[in-house]
Design a protein around this nucleic acid. Structure first.
Length: 419
DNA sequence: TCTGGGGTCCTAGGACCC
DNA sequence: TCTGGGGTCCTAGGACCC
């Protein structure tokens, strides 16, 4: 029988913050989104205080103060490194592993004789080697494995491992699970389903797949089939090539000046170009957007975007910056309090798929590659940065990160000392 | 005062082709 | 008054995920 395991780290960001801070055990901890805006991770103690997921910090200030909740800015250097260690550990348990997100992976466990014992071993090993707690959900389809994991987290008596291989167990769990908890059913679809009288995962599983396809989409039809044990979503062990690359930020404070916003936008453009080169891809399409905050009543609301095409697919920061500054002038409007901007690269391709431009082929391409490689090397050397005119890296418009923990595992000066 | 960022996939509709 | 049928491609927008 086909069998998937979903291994998911328990409130991952909080667990990472606790790794080097034993004093944070059993106390409420929350981690904030970029710019210290919303709460994106909560320890069980924080959840018990009624602090919701995705809530803006300022709305729960009082609770945070009264219960001395420990607050952290997001520290992606730390989370990314811990994530890599978890995934490395998981690789030992199955040759077929799909890294689904920073804190989750699907494993192919087909052929494993006693899945529950195996799941317990996975848990214990990650705990011992990396130090973060994980939950394991096992089932014949990915959607059911997600649900099994949900149960493993929710019900302490499961010991953190749930095996839904047996159909009667699947039904029992589906019957008590709200339909909105199903993977692929978001707020909107859950609301539409409610109107049809579908409130539990079991109700959804009992719907006629073809009817769901007509009324909703082929995506939800697959979900229905998966809930019934028919595997429709395979394991993707090879990470697919990226289709777009984005860099966008809310500003630490609202910006009104042409020059400041332009600098921010140029910085985003340079960052996307850098990511593009790291992926060894070229881009043809460049998209820029700027907007005011929808929550800001003190100025005119404005949101605009522009898209441009590079004459020839490129990963050269200069070409991308030139296009972005042109697009910027097209959409810039005076007198607004800008809250956010972003650059998106699309229509990506690998260098060997490209028909070289008759006029820039050869030497120019080679010079561009060498220049970009040199820039990236300098910027990653840790010995200072260089950038293009127009860019202004990490100054006052940059993110607020008032509660940042040290990069314990990725910077020499942050490594904890044991006395 | 303070409301994240980075992705994917699907669908509908329009433009265009023969 | 009558105005085809079958396609493809692109884009915008909406839904979802973590």
């Amino acid at each position: 029988m086909r069998r998937f395991a979903l291994v998911d780290c328990n409130n991952f960001y909080c667990s990472c913050e606790r790794l080097f801070r034993p004093d944070l055990k059993r106390v409420p901890v929350v981690v904030l989104s970029n710019n210290d805006g919303c709460i994106v991770a909560r320890s069980p103690e924080a959840r018990a205080l009624g602090i919701g997921m995705g809530v803006p910090l300022f709305k729960v200030r009082e609770t945070v103060r009264r219960h001395n909740v420990r607050v952290f800015s997001s520290n992606y250097a730390l989370y990314g490194d811990i994530s890599a260690r978890v995934m490395q550990t998981l690789e030992r348990f199955s040759p077929d592993l799909e890294i689904y997100s920073i804190d989750e992976a699907f494993l192919d466990l087909s052929g494993v004789a006693s899945p529950v014992a195996y799941g317990q071993e996975i848990r214990a090993t990650v705990r011992r080697h990396v130090g973060v707690p994980v939950s394991v959900g096992i089932a014949p389809t990915k959607t059911l494995a997600k649900l099994a994991n949900y149960a493993a987290k929710r019900f302490a008596e499961t010991g953190g491992v749930v095996d839904l291989s047996a159909p009667h167990k699947q039904r029992r769990l589906l019957a008590i699970t709200p339909v909105g908890e199903v993977w692929g059913v978001g707020r909107r679809i859950a609301a539409s389903l409610q109107k049809l009288g579908v409130t539990t995962a079991l109700d959804l599983a009992r719907m006629e797949p073809r009817r769901i396809r007509r009324r909703f989409s082929v995506v939800l039809e697959r979900t229905v089939r998966e809930l019934n044990g028919e595997s429709c979503i395979g394991l993707e062990a090879m990470p697919a090539a990226k289709k777009q690359i984005v860099c966008s930020r809310s500003f630490g404070e609202k910006l009104t000046g042409y020059a400041e916003v332009r600098q921010a936008v140029c910085e985003f453009a340079a960052r996307t170009a850098e990511k593009l080169r790291r992926e060894e891809l070229l881009a043809r399409m460049v998209h820029l957007f700027i907007r005011t905050s929808p929550f800001d009543g003190s100025g005119p609301g404005y949101s605009n975007a522009a898209t441009g095409t590079l004459p020839c697919p490129s990963a050269d920061s200069r070409a991308i910056l030139a296009l972005v500054t042109r697009l910027f002038d097209d959409i810039w409007k005076d007198g607004c309090r800008y809250a956010k901007a972003g650059v998106m690269l699309g229509d990506l391709c690998s260098p060997d798929q490209v028909q070289p431009d008759l006029f820039t082929a050869g030497d120019d391409q080679d010079r561009s590659d060498r220049l970009m490689r040199a820039i990236d090397a300098i910027n990653h050397s840790g010995r200072g940065k260089i950038w293009f005119g127009g860019q202004r890296p990490q100054t006052d418009w940059f993110m607020r990160r008032a509660h940042l923990s040290p990069a314990y595992t990725t910077r020499w000066e942050c490594i904890p000392e044991v006395c």
